[in-house]
Structures are given as C-alpha cells and as structure tokens.
Deep mutational scan, measured.
Amino acid sequence: MGFKLLSKLLVYLTASIMAIASPLAFSVDSSGEYPTVSEIPVGEVRLYQIADGVWSHIATQSFDGAVYPSNGLIVRDGDELLLIDTAWGAKNTAALLAEIEKQIGLPVTRAVSTHFHDDRVGGVDVLRAAGVATYASPSTRRLAEVEGNEIPTHSLEGLSSSGDAVRFGPVELFYPGAAHSTDNLIVYVPSASVLYGGCAIYELSRTSAGNVADADLAEWPTSIERIQQHYPEAQFVIPGHGLPGGLDLLKHTTNVVKAHTNRSVVE
C-alpha cells in the first residue's frame, strides 16, 4: 500500500471513529477524501466538511520552486461564519470567499490569524475590503508590521502568557507558548472536538522541520505538551499544512522538532 493511500485511509478511519463516538456532533463529509496538494491548482481553494458547521479550507501556493498546501478553518456561528487564517495570499483568499459563498452561503463576518507569517495573514486586506472584521493577538499584529505583512485590524486580548485561553464565538483560542513562531495560536472547536494546530503542528508525513527561522526550538516541545494537557479530548487535529489526523500529530511534531534540534547540535 502506497504512503499517500495509507495517509488518506488514516484520515478516513479517524473521521469514521469520530462519527461513531459522537453521532450528534459529527456529520463528516462523505463526498470524498481530504484534498491534497496535487489536486488543488494554485489560485483555487477546496472546502472539506469535518463536522456539522465545521470545515477546513485548503489552498496551495508556490514557494521556492515548489507547491505547498495550506489549511485553515471555518466555523459556523449562528447565521454567520468565523474564518481562521487566510488562504495564503490575496488571490487565494478572494477564491476562498467565493467558494464559501458557493458552498455554504453564509457571510464571513470575523477572521482570526493564528500567527504573523504570510500563509496566515496574506489576504487580510481582501477580507477587510469584503467587510470582514480581522483579528490577531497584539504580538501577531506587531510582528506582521515588522515583517511588512498585512496586519489584522483588531487585537485579541488575554493571550499574552503561555497557557492563556479565551473564548471567541464558537471557538476557544489558546496560546501554548512559542513553537513554530513566538505568537502562534491554537484554535479548538469544543462542539466538535476539532483542534486546529496551525503551523505549530505537523502532518504525519512530514519528517523535516522546514521553516524554523522564527521558531523557538527549545520551547516548542513544552508548548505541545500544554496543548495535549489542555485538549486531551480532541479527536480531529488539523495541521497548518497537509493531512489531518488525531492527537498523534502532536507527538510526531515533537519528535521531528527534537530530531532537528539534535542534528543542529551535532553539526
């Protein structure tokens, strides 16, 4: 069995187990497998329904001669939608809004960016022009300005110390501490036991640490421990890039980060 097929099978099995364990909360999309990078042309966006009122959005972007996937989250909030992270750029984010209108038909009224990198804030200006209120932590807003990236308009308070959590509509926002970046936030959907790890969490097929220019490698494993301790009931975990899975993604990420750190020390 090929690795790609095995990865998709694991996603399907995880979703099936969740649907059985929580039949009222989960209505997993039966329309197909989780979209992969090879299936999404740059400039297009796919939506994948995880649970009743919960979707991931998947886009792709060219970077350094390669094409990478990027995940975000959409959560229903009454007759409105909360968006977590842009679709990595203005063109993708405009396509995301169009796809949401086509498939869901509810307005996106608020959006949260989970850290300051372009795959999370690139497209904020498109959201703002569409009347979406954009939010991020003060740290993310400051770092985005320093980096020359787009800056969300509103500040999220109460997320300055490791372990801080605040309720934001249908989700809980959690600051686990520094990891992929010093400002990275985690998003949890309690009604569906869905954990969105953003770039602080890796997919299972990833074996290298990737972009760690703004990471705190020493603190990252401790931050992941905080996530595990705060959300032990999480059933569906979405990484910032690639295929979702279960809580095993947290341990896998820790292993990859520690291996990278150990290699760096040896070198």
Rank of each mutant, 00 (worst) to 15 (best):
1 M>I: 06
1 M>C: 01
2 G>Q: 15
3 F>W: 07
5 L>G: 09
5 L>V: 15
5 L>Y: 15
7 S>H: 12
10 L>P: 15
11 V>I: 14
13 L>A: 14
16 S>Q: 15
17 I>L: 10
18 M>N: 15
19 A>I: 15
19 A>E: 15
20 I>W: 11
22 S>M: 14
24 L>A: 12
24 L>M: 15
25 A>G: 14
25 A>E: 14
29 D>S: 10
29 D>P: 10
29 D>C: 07
30 S>D: 12
30 S>L: 11
31 S>L: 10
31 S>I: 08
32 G>P: 09
32 G>R: 10
33 E>W: 10
33 E>L: 09
34 Y>G: 08
35 P>D: 07
36 T>S: 13
38 S>Q: 09
40 I>N: 06
44 E>Y: 08
47 L>S: 02
48 Y>P: 05
48 Y>M: 15
48 Y>V: 15
50 I>H: 08
50 I>M: 09
51 A>Q: 08
51 A>D: 10
52 D>A: 12
53 G>L: 07
55 W>H: 03
56 S>C: 15
57 H>G: 02
57 H>P: 02
57 H>W: 00
58 I>G: 03
58 I>T: 15
60 T>W: 11
61 Q>V: 15
61 Q>P: 05
62 S>K: 08
62 S>L: 07
64 D>I: 08
65 G>Y: 07
66 A>F: 15
66 A>D: 15
67 V>I: 09
67 V>L: 15
68 Y>V: 15
71 N>P: 00
72 G>Y: 04
73 L>G: 05
74 I>G: 02
74 I>F: 06
75 V>E: 03
76 R>Y: 06
77 D>G: 08
78 G>D: 14
78 G>T: 08
79 D>Y: 09
79 D>I: 10
79 D>W: 09
81 L>Y: 02
83 L>R: 02
84 I>M: 07
85 D>T: 00
87 A>V: 03
87 A>E: 00
89 G>W: 02
89 G>T: 04
91 K>L: 14
92 N>L: 03
92 N>Q: 05
92 N>S: 06
92 N>E: 04
94 A>V: 14
95 A>S: 12
96 L>G: 02
99 E>D: 08
99 E>M: 14
100 I>A: 06
101 E>T: 11
102 K>L: 12
102 K>C: 08
103 Q>S: 14
104 I>W: 00
104 I>E: 00
105 G>H: 15
106 L>N: 07
108 V>E: 03
109 T>Q: 10
109 T>V: 13
109 T>W: 06
113 S>N: 06
114 T>N: 03
114 T>E: 00
115 H>F: 02
116 F>W: 15
116 F>R: 04
117 H>D: 02
122 G>Y: 06
123 G>F: 02
124 V>C: 04
125 D>M: 08
125 D>N: 12
127 L>N: 00
127 L>Y: 03
128 R>Y: 10
129 A>E: 13
129 A>Q: 13
129 A>G: 11
131 G>D: 08
132 V>P: 00
135 Y>F: 11
135 Y>N: 04
136 A>S: 08
137 S>H: 06
137 S>N: 07
137 S>D: 00
138 P>F: 08
138 P>C: 05
139 S>M: 14
139 S>A: 14
141 R>G: 02
145 E>R: 14
146 V>E: 14
146 V>Y: 13
146 V>T: 14
150 E>A: 05
151 I>Q: 03
151 I>W: 05
154 H>V: 07
154 H>M: 10
154 H>R: 08
155 S>L: 11
155 S>Q: 14
155 S>K: 11
156 L>S: 03
156 L>C: 03
156 L>F: 06
157 E>N: 14
157 E>M: 12
157 E>W: 12
161 S>A: 13
162 S>C: 07
163 G>L: 04
163 G>N: 08
164 D>W: 04
164 D>F: 06
165 A>F: 15
167 R>A: 12
168 F>D: 00
171 V>R: 01
172 E>R: 02
172 E>K: 05
173 L>Y: 05
174 F>N: 01
175 Y>W: 05
178 A>N: 09
178 A>E: 07
179 A>H: 05
179 A>C: 04
183 D>L: 02
184 N>S: 04
185 L>N: 04
185 L>D: 02
187 V>G: 02
188 Y>G: 01
188 Y>H: 05
191 S>Q: 12
192 A>H: 09
193 S>T: 09
193 S>Y: 14
197 G>C: 05
198 G>A: 06
198 G>V: 05
199 C>M: 01
200 A>L: 10
201 I>K: 03
201 I>S: 05
201 I>F: 08
201 I>N: 06
202 Y>I: 15
202 Y>D: 08
202 Y>H: 11
204 L>D: 09
206 R>E: 07
207 T>Y: 10
208 S>E: 12
211 N>C: 04
214 D>C: 05
214 D>V: 06
216 D>C: 03
217 L>C: 01
217 L>W: 07
217 L>E: 05
218 A>Y: 14
218 A>F: 11
219 E>I: 09
219 E>P: 03
219 E>G: 07
219 E>Y: 05
221 P>Y: 06
221 P>F: 05
222 T>K: 12
223 S>C: 03
223 S>N: 01
223 S>F: 05
224 I>Q: 00
224 I>N: 05
224 I>L: 07
226 R>F: 04
229 Q>G: 11
230 H>I: 08
230 H>L: 08
231 Y>N: 08
231 Y>D: 01
233 E>W: 09
234 A>S: 09
235 Q>C: 06
236 F>L: 09
238 I>Q: 00
239 P>G: 02
240 G>R: 04
240 G>W: 04
240 G>A: 05
240 G>Y: 02
241 H>S: 00
242 G>V: 05
242 G>R: 05
243 L>Y: 14
244 P>T: 04
244 P>H: 04
245 G>Q: 02
246 G>L: 04
247 L>E: 08
250 L>V: 04
252 H>A: 03
253 T>A: 05
253 T>W: 01
254 T>F: 13
254 T>Y: 13
255 N>R: 12
255 N>Q: 12
256 V>S: 03
256 V>E: 02
258 K>M: 12
258 K>G: 11
258 K>E: 14
259 A>G: 13
260 H>A: 14
261 T>A: 12
263 R>C: 07
264 S>P: 13
264 S>T: 12
264 S>H: 13
264 S>E: 14
265 V>N: 11
266 V>R: 14
267 E>L: 09
